[in-house]
Design a protein around this nucleic acid. Sequence first.
DNA 1: AGCGGGATTTTCT
DNA 2: GAAAATCCCGCTT
Length: 193
Amino acid sequence: MARKVKLAGTLATPASEAAKQLLGCILEREIDGERVRVKIVETEAYDQTDAASHSFNGRKPRTDVMFGPAGHLYVYFTYGMHYCCNVVVGEEGTGSAVLIRATEPVEGEAVLEKRRKGRAGVELTNGPAKLCQALAIDKTMNGHDLEKAPLRLVLVEGQKEIITTKRIGISKEKDRLWRFYLKNNTYVSKSRN
DNA sequence: AGCGGGATTTTCT
DNA sequence: GAAAATCCCGCTT
């Protein structure tokens, strides 16, 4: 069951550990007065030692949030049209974050369908840019403290079967087994391994 | 079912 | 100037 825990302390672990912790956790979002909740089912880890990570080249304006305290949101814009969101993890100053790649709707599915016009079911949130569109996350949310409305992260503890694979869509550090997802969950973005 | 291209901004070389 | 932590559509097997 969900328990209230301090995010910053609990998530101050290496990115690959935090990425596994975040599976099964809940994101609570308020959109136009409606409450939406989704469960995190797929994540990827990134840190400063990793050439595929935005933080690899050091603390810059874009990556500043990644070097801040754990439990905040790092949002980046990519491919000229998409946003993706990460949970900042690790000790402050380490440039670590966990990319949220897929979620499963738990409450407020109608709101997600409206924002993902023309889509339903699995297609609502089974990809990093899709779930940002569905949950109305854009650059104005960059740096947001996930302890606070309108977007909270609720940590959930419990047993879960985790599959570990290579990350998706990167060209450097391809062999790191830093992608994690919940076994048999249909909301996981299929793609490659 | 699978491949290929377009959209279009930020960052790095 | 090119590539990028992506998605969607259209065309070909």
